Computed example of a mutant assay.
Amino acid sequence: MALLFRSFYATAVSNQFMYNEAGVPTNGVQGFVKHLLTAIEEHQSDHVGVCWDLGGGTFRNEMWSEYKAHRSAPPAELSPQFDYAKEIADALGFINISCQGYEADDCLGTLADHYRSQNAHTTIVTGDKDILQLVDEDTNVWILQKGYGNYKKYDPITFVEEWEIQPKQLIDLKAFMGDTADGYPGVKGIGEKTATALIKKYGNVQTVIDNVSELSKGQMTKIQNDLEMLDMSLRLAEINCSVPITVEIDTLFYKGFTADSLDICGYYGLKVVRREIEKLLG
């Protein structure tokens, strides 16, 4: 979804929606597929899967009714591209992965854990920094930057160099800071600088609470006044790595593209994607 949204808004700002013959906008879809192809080429991937969010809410909405509740509805030109993108990804031979009641991030975390047990190394390509909590020796994260093929690449070393905490501690950091985009406040009055200092000194939320009397009066008061929301935010921020899905790695084997792929692009009116695949086919 991060790739699709990024692609849509990159061209929507100048009204370049690139309608196909059926009248369906394709700017987001074409950019999404181009991002996918670029990442595969850069990474030289053996296996590829695409994880999606689904409508209808998740277990986080059951925990906190305000979770993502204030996000505006997608533009009319984007809405039909959600299902269209999945349909096209499937037609091009990619496996779409999702689970009702869970977010794509949860699917990504669950699969990364599963493939780790099979001694496989996973790289996640996204625009969502929440995924960075999954970084470890077996899971790298590439965060999209502006343009195609431009990534900020994270492994455990590069993450610690930038954030000065461990990847899993990002959960505790977000619990204190909250997330305005996702609609939960964390602890009111505690921002990134203070939250980072607390995590660096105490390690996690629970240890901060256990030693709250050591903090300044202002920090202690803020935390004590928001203990319930702090606990809620901690649970909301953590990616669930126990989603009830099974996608064996062999099913994700990447077969590459053929002339049939060009026919698929022609059928869906994907001129940009067709050019990219023609380059790959030489």
Results as ranks from 00 to 15, higher is better:
residue 121 H to R: 13
residue 121 H to T: 11
residue 121 H to M: 12
residue 121 H to Q: 14
residue 121 H to G: 06
residue 122 T to S: 14
residue 123 T to E: 05
residue 123 T to V: 15
residue 123 T to A: 12
residue 124 I to M: 01
residue 124 I to E: 01
residue 124 I to T: 02
residue 124 I to G: 00
residue 125 V to F: 15
residue 125 V to L: 14
residue 126 T to A: 03
residue 126 T to K: 07
residue 128 D to L: 03
residue 128 D to Y: 00
residue 129 K to A: 07
residue 129 K to M: 08
residue 129 K to I: 04
residue 130 D to Q: 00
residue 130 D to K: 00
residue 131 I to P: 03
residue 132 L to M: 11
residue 132 L to A: 10
residue 132 L to P: 06
residue 133 Q to H: 09
residue 133 Q to E: 12
residue 134 L to A: 12
residue 135 V to Y: 01
residue 137 E to Q: 14
residue 137 E to M: 11
residue 137 E to A: 09
residue 138 D to P: 00
residue 140 N to Q: 13
residue 140 N to R: 13
residue 140 N to C: 11
residue 141 V to F: 01
residue 141 V to C: 08
residue 141 V to H: 06
residue 141 V to L: 09
residue 141 V to T: 03
residue 141 V to K: 05
residue 142 W to K: 04
residue 143 I to V: 07
residue 143 I to G: 01
residue 144 L to H: 05
residue 144 L to W: 03
residue 144 L to G: 09
residue 145 Q to K: 15
residue 145 Q to T: 08
residue 146 K to H: 15
residue 146 K to V: 10
residue 147 G to T: 01
residue 147 G to V: 07
residue 147 G to A: 07
residue 147 G to Q: 08
residue 148 Y to V: 01
residue 149 G to P: 08
residue 149 G to V: 05
residue 149 G to E: 08
residue 150 N to L: 06
residue 150 N to T: 14
residue 151 Y to H: 02
residue 151 Y to K: 06
residue 151 Y to T: 05
residue 151 Y to N: 04
residue 151 Y to P: 02
residue 152 K to V: 00
residue 152 K to N: 07
residue 152 K to T: 04
residue 153 K to C: 05
residue 153 K to G: 02
residue 153 K to T: 03
residue 153 K to W: 00
residue 153 K to S: 07
residue 153 K to Q: 09
residue 155 D to L: 08
residue 155 D to M: 09
residue 155 D to R: 12
residue 156 P to K: 10
residue 157 I to R: 08
residue 157 I to L: 15
residue 157 I to D: 05
residue 159 F to T: 03
residue 159 F to R: 01
residue 159 F to D: 03
residue 159 F to Q: 06
residue 160 V to L: 14
residue 160 V to T: 15
residue 161 E to Y: 08
residue 162 E to V: 02
residue 162 E to F: 01
residue 162 E to I: 02
residue 162 E to L: 14
residue 163 W to L: 04
residue 163 W to H: 10
residue 163 W to D: 04
residue 165 I to V: 10
residue 166 Q to E: 14
residue 167 P to W: 02
residue 167 P to A: 12
residue 167 P to E: 04
residue 168 K to P: 06
residue 168 K to C: 14
residue 169 Q to C: 01
residue 169 Q to V: 03
residue 170 L to M: 08
residue 170 L to K: 09
residue 170 L to G: 10
residue 171 I to Q: 01
residue 172 D to N: 15
residue 172 D to C: 12
residue 172 D to V: 11
residue 172 D to L: 10
residue 173 L to C: 08
residue 173 L to A: 07
residue 173 L to M: 15
residue 174 K to N: 11
residue 174 K to T: 08
residue 174 K to R: 11
residue 174 K to A: 06
residue 176 F to P: 04
residue 177 M to T: 13
residue 177 M to G: 02
residue 178 G to C: 13
residue 179 D to E: 06
residue 179 D to V: 08
residue 180 T to Y: 13
residue 180 T to G: 10
residue 180 T to S: 15
residue 181 A to H: 03
residue 181 A to R: 00
residue 181 A to V: 09
residue 182 D to K: 06
residue 182 D to F: 02
residue 184 Y to Q: 03
residue 184 Y to W: 13
residue 184 Y to D: 02
residue 184 Y to R: 04
residue 185 P to A: 09
residue 186 G to S: 06
residue 186 G to H: 04
residue 186 G to C: 09
residue 187 V to C: 11
residue 187 V to L: 08
